[in-house]
């Protein structure tokens, strides 16, 4: 999400100027022709432009972004599919067709299948955890009578922090392995030994670091979404519930708040899953070093990054992995949309 957002932003900016040329030419070039030229071209140009030039304006506004999407998303996507059928070491214009060899190699590669598991476990854990944490933050902030804006901002602020910066702070100062790291200092008060948080695989402490940094960064953002949802619930419902004798607390939450938040919840879950799928930044910045990446907690994007873009430069194999990953994501997303009843929720919520 973050990487792509930045990418399309850049694309948009880079493209913004370009279509002006053709559009402008269409305006200036044709105007003289439509004036004096009585031929059949004038009605055609006018028809093409649509009533009140609507078609023209449609393309002026949509064109740059459609073009950016095409050039920076669909062309690379198609190219990657093409590469995945070739032996493409250190080249993007390969000649040696290998059929499905890259796909079979990737599926037999334990490192890749392990990375898919890593990814599944991570998603299964981080989505419910972030959901619960941000919902409870929202419920708490929503009940505040004073300083609500203050707490809302405080919890939201981490969302403005970059993943890379947060990961480095977590790695260098909070969870470094030496005695003066924050976590180890706290352990030291209780007389415990220092722990190398990111290098210990038994128990897997590195998950603590990865999960906390993501929670810290994300929870505030989803809290704001939940807050907006909570504030849209009509107070009359709570009043009616109170009149009917519903006990405040769990019963009201279970039967009024949560059902009313359904639309928000669906959106939050969807965004969380997409974010988990794109896990790269904090993993890479926490665990990689100059010599590579350890074989644990390696999500598929990190693994493919090393296969295709690292010194390995095996772009064919990397593309095959990317296509497989895209298929997995597509299946999960469609399944999720079906299961959560996307669209249906919108009608109910609105």
């Amino acid at each position: 999400m973050r990487a792509r957002g930045a990418g399309s932003g850049r694309a948009g900016r880079a493209e913004a100027g370009r279509p002006r040329g053709p559009a402008g030419r269409a305006g200036t070039g044709r105007a003289p022709r439509t004036g004096p030229g009585p031929g059949a071209r004038a009605p055609l140009a006018r028809r093409l432009a649509g009533p009140q030039n609507r078609n023209l304006w449609f393309w002026v506004f949509v064109g740059p972004f459609a073009l950016g999407l095409l050039v920076f998303t669909y062309v690379p996507l198609g190219w990657s599919v093409y590469l995945s059928f070739f032996d493409a070491h250190n080249t993007v214009s390969p000649t040696e067709f290998v059929g499905l060899d890259n796909y079979t190699a990737m599926l037999k590669d334990e490192a890749f299948t392990d990375s898919l598991w890593t990814f599944a476990v991570f998603t299964a854990f981080i989505v419910p955890t972030t959901f619960a944490l941000s919902l409870s933050l929202a419920l708490m902030v929503n009940r505040l009578r004073r300083a609500q804006a203050f707490f809302r901002s405080v919890f939201f602020l981490p969302a403005a922090c970059s993943y890379v910066v947060a990961a480095l702070i977590w790695k260098m100062s909070l969870f470094n392995g030496v005695r003066f790291g924050l976590a180890n200092t706290v352990l030291g008060w209780f007389g415990a030994d220092q722990t190398a948080w990111l290098s210990t695989t038994d128990p897997p402490w590195y998950w603590l670091v990865i999960v906390t940094v993501r929670l810290w960064l994300q929870a505030g953002f989803y809290m704001v979404l939940f807050l907006a949802g909570l504030q849209r619930i009509p107070p009359v419902l709570y009043e009616a519930a109170a009149v009917d004798g519903a006990r405040p607390g769990w019963q009201v939450l279970r039967h009024i708040t949560l059902p009313q938040l359904r639309a928000t919840s669906v959106a939050v879950v969807l965004l969380l899953v997409i974010n988990a799928f794109q896990a790269f930044d904090e993993f890479y910045n926490l665990l990689s070093d100059a010599r590579g990446y350890p074989p644990y907690a390696r999500p598929p994007l990190v693994y493919l990054y090393y296969t295709a873009l690292g010194q390995g430069q095996n772009l064919g194999l990397g593309s095959a992995g990317a296509v497989l990953l895209a298929l997995v994501i597509a299946v999960v997303t469609i399944g999720q949309a079906r299961w959560l009843g996307l669209g249906r929720a919108d009608e109910k919520g609105a």
């Binding site: 470094n176 392995g177 290098s199």
Partner: peptide, 9 residues
């Protein structure tokens, strides 16, 4: 020693 602020190099 593991998890030092700077690496081996």
């Amino acid at each position: 020693l593991l998890g030092a602020p700077s690496d081996w190099s």
